[in-house]
Structure formats: C-alpha cells, structure tokens
Amino acid sequence: MFRESPIIRWRNYSDRYKLRGYKCTKCSATYFEYKGMCPCGNLDFTEIDFSGRGKIAAFTQIHGGPEAFENKTPYCVAVIDLVEGARIEAQVMDCKYEDLKIGTEVEAVFRKFYSSGEKGVIHYGTKFVPKF
C-alpha cells in the first residue's frame, strides 16, 4: 500500500471541520460534503453549516478495523439523520455501545481521527456523541 498523501485529506478539511454541507438551490435537498449534480438536475448549491444535531438511523460496533483504525477497535459507526435533512455516516463515541438505539439523539464533536504514519499529518474530523 502507498503512504497516504496529506493532500488527499486536506481538500476536504473545510467540509469536515465545520460539518459543512451543500443545499440544492432548486429542490433544497441537502448533502454532507460536495455533491456534483443533484438528482433534480441542478448544479447550483449553497453552503450550509449543519447544526450537528441528529438521530441514529442504523449503527454497529466494528471489531475488525482497517489499517488506519486497527488499534482503535472496537468502535461504533452509525448512519445519522441530521435535523437539516442530510444523512451521514460517522463514528459515535464517549458512550456505552449497549446504550445506543435506533432513534438515539446525537450531537457532533470535533475529534482526532488518525495520523498518516508516525511522522505524518494528523487527520481530524467530526464524530458524534449521544445526548441521553
């Protein structure tokens, strides 16, 4: 495998750090991160910074991780419906996995993800914590 270039992740920093999405100017559909062409055919979007509040639509706890996360298992990943309408996939943390349910309300937090090797860039992004 190749060592990851920092550029690959840097491109998406503004979206990830601010949980920024895009809203179609024609049909108002919202997406987390860039969406090239809306299913309605429109190419124009306005930026929308999501509030970070949402509900779990599906979730799992991963015990066998990929290379970048192999030392972090087990960790929880969920499909989350944001209150503004977009659906995203993200890690849910700072909780007991057993306490999570479909429908649990969650809130976005800014967290470290992993680093590209010992001397590599540290990548950050958005994870979620439950609001019990």
Binding site: P66, V77, E89, Q91
Partner: peptide, 10 residues
C-alpha cells in the same frame, strides 16, 4: 472512500 472509509467503516 471519503464518506465511509475515512470514518473507519469496513
């Protein structure tokens, strides 16, 4: 890769 892989999904 961006929406799932980056988040540790397998």
């Amino acid at each position: 890769e961006e929406l799932e892989g980056f988040n540790g999904l397998t």
